[in-house]
Nucleic acid binder design. Structure first.
Length: 271
DNA sequence: ATGGTTGTCATACAA
């Protein structure tokens, strides 16, 4: 049975609810995980998504910053949000799909928004970078103790790191740029290893092919310069990895009217 | 080496 999961850093869900609707209509994933909703829970535009068939919505938001949400065609059996680094930041929400989800019944989905980490790649000089590294250490510990990568589970989100050489437009020129420094890349790979997670996008499109999911707003012409990064990820547990079908990066979405700087990534499974 | 843009909230700050 086909099951499609999508992840998208939307950079304000209220401003871009229309774009989310367009994406849902065009690509019809079973589940969409959003990051950077920037929206308190009582102001989330539930109605617009319910109309499109996404009647089950788990939200974990706050005013102005961060915020994650899961929109689903299928009911959830459970949902939870984890706290990382003892902060109130809304950076994680996890759901388990109920028995109504057919072949995907019982699958757990973890939706993450990892801290961006500021501009200076030095944890001493830059508290934000220190926070990012601590967050990754805590994610790794959680993968070791809670074993979220055991069973049938998926981890998606804006992890704010492009770990492989061809996850950025220029490996050499990005080595000192936060999102591609060896320190944070190693930590992300360690999280992945600790949990036994499989990088779905790279299973399907191995290096050295370039893969990007984000292009800066600051570029004069994002498509022409194409200085992208792969900051958004879909990881599968070993048990689900065999079900991997296809992958779509909706690059067009970067050119839509008033776009997010991230584009949706969809992964389909045969469950 | 520098500055380039966007969103939120209210004038900086985070990304």
């Amino acid at each position: 049975m086909p099951f499609t999961i999508a992840t998208w850093n939307i950079n304000s869900v209220r401003l871009r609810a229309g774009l989310v609707g367009d994406m849902l209509k065009q690509h019809a994933p079973d589940v969409l995980c959003l990051q950077e909703t920037k929206c308190p829970d009582d102001r989330f535009p539930l109605g617009e998504f319910r109309k499109l068939g996404y009647g089950h919505i788990a939200i974990h938001g706050q005013k102005g910053y961060h915020g994650v949400a899961v929109l689903s065609r299928h009911p959830f059996a459970t949902q939870e949000s984890r706290v990382f680094c003892d902060r109130v930041d809304c950076r994680h929400i996890g759901v388990t799909l109920g028995p109504e989800a057919g072949g995907a019944a019982g699958v757990t989905i973890h939706n993450f928004y990892v801290p961006a980490g500021g501009d200076i790649p030095d944890p001493v000089a830059n508290e934000k970078f220190a926070h990012k590294l601590a967050f990754l250490d805590e994610m790794r510990a959680w993968c070791g103790t809670a074993r979220p990568g055991s069973g049938r589970s998926i981890l998606v989100g804006d992890l704010n790191i492009a770990p492989l050489e061809n996850d950025v437009w220029s490996h050499k020129q990005m080595l000192d740029v936060v999102s591609h420094t060896p320190l944070e890349c190693d930590k992300l790979v360690a999280v992945q290893g600790e949990g036994g997670w499989v990088d779905a996008m790279r299973q399907l499109v191995p290096e050295p092919e370039k893969l990007f999911t984000w292009w800066s707003y600051r570029a004069q012409d994002w498509a022409l310069s194409n200085r992208g990064r792969r900051l958004d990820h879909v990881w599968l547990s070993q048990e689900l990895a065999g079900a991997l079908g296809g992958m779509t990066i909706v690059r067009d979405a970067r050119g839509w009217e008033r776009p997010s700087d991230h584009v949706p990534v969809l992964v389909s499974l045969d469950v």
